[in-house]
């Protein structure tokens, strides 16, 4: 177990290093001189020189990379050129909208998809299965931001159950915050839940065809007992992979959907960063997003070991 954990941890560290190199290269190397890029063509040479000094662009590439990464470690993301405040501050406030939204959606998606997928697999070929397969086929095809607009149209504008957008801030209390994130989370979660339910269904159907299910049935377990006691845990292994991947889709989706609901999250920050050519903001927020995705991949790997003894004991599986 310790060996597996250490290998995964090493792979996590390696991924982070390479990812940071890629981001650094795209943002700071490809544009040539980031300072003149950020200021545009008409900037006075003195202003450019001042910004160069501020960004520390006079040092070597290696030194700049190391100081950027070193800063990330201690929570120093640099200073935004447009806002004139530390990026860490900007990100900190907005992260508390985007991250809860993503996790809320992930939770909804998982809670909906797993039972739905299990029901479809257990009643394979029956009306419930056909209904679920049809509904999820539609769910997969719906773009989440359009679904969000429809939800606003129905639940905010017509029924007035929710407000059409905005975020009261967590200071206003837990419930108003959750309420404001509910429509966005539902809009994000349903298309992903459709995918996940289908994966759950096919994984369970495949597991139910395994020899050990036949063994279990020959012991006297009913179909339901065989599903609960043997098939489910085995079927969840591929489902976990998809849940891990969905985190990154949901995070990206959250960034898009914040636009529909006027939520003050990372999405708004990064799109403003792009229009204002504030590379400092873009670089750090992208690194943060990628970090989150890589971290989740790592956590999924650890969860595999918790569920599967073949990984736990020194990689005996061949």
């Amino acid at each position: 177990m310790a060996r597996y954990f250490l290998t995964r941890l090493g792979s996590l560290a390696l991924s982070l290093i390479v990812a940071s190199l890629v981001i650094f290269a795209v943002i700071e190397v490809i544009p040539g001189d980031p300072a003149s890029f950020m200021l545009g063509l008409n900037a006075a040479p003195e202003t450019v020189a001042a910004l160069r000094a501020e960004l520390g662009l006079d040092g070597s590439l290696t030194a700049r990379y190391l100081s950027w990464v070193g800063g990330l470690f201690v929570g120093d993301f640099g200073t935004s050129y447009t806002y004139r405040v530390p990026v860490a501050e900007l990100v900190g406030a907005r992260l508390w909208v985007s991250l809860p939204l993503t996790l809320y959606a992930l939770l909804l998606s998982t809670l909906i998809a797993i039972p739905v997928g299990v029901i479809a697999a257990a009643r394979r070929g029956g009306p419930a299965d056909y209904g679920i397969m049809g509904a999820t086929q539609l769910g997969i095809a719906i773009p989440n931001f359009w679904f969000a607009m429809l939800l606003v149209l129905v639940f905010a504008i017509s029924l007035r159950w929710f407000s059409a957008g905005g975020f009261p801030g967590w200071e206003a209390g837990l419930w108003p915050g959750i309420k404001a994130l509910t429509l966005p989370a539902v809009a994000l979660a349903l298309p992903q839940a459709s995918i996940l339910a289908r994966v759950m269904r096919s994984s369970l159907i495949e597991t139910l065809g395994q020899d050990y299910i036949r063994t279990a049935r020959a012991k006297g377990l009913s179909q339901r007992q065989a599903i609960v006691r043997h098939a489910l845990r085995n079927a969840l292994i591929p489902v976990m992979t998809i849940i891990g991947l969905q985190f990154s889709f949901l995070l990206a989706g959250a960034i898009i959907i914040e636009n529909v609901f006027f939520l003050p999250g990372l999405g708004r920050l990064i799109f403003q960063g792009i229009t204002q050519r504030d590379l400092v903001v873009v670089e750090s927020v992208v690194m943060l997003l990628v970090f989150a995705v890589i971290l989740v991949t790592f956590l999924v790997d650890i969860a595999y070991a918790a569920i599967d003894p073949r990984l736990r004991r020194g990689g005996g599986a061949r």
């Binding site: 990812a19 990154s248 990206a252 873009v282 990628v290 890589i294």
Partner: peptide, 25 residues
Amino acid sequence: MRGNDLIFAFPSLVIAILITAVFGP
């Protein structure tokens, strides 16, 4: 395969953000 894993950590939205930040939309 490691290179593949790495690209998976960059959803297409993030790649688009990076490209757009430097080259414009």
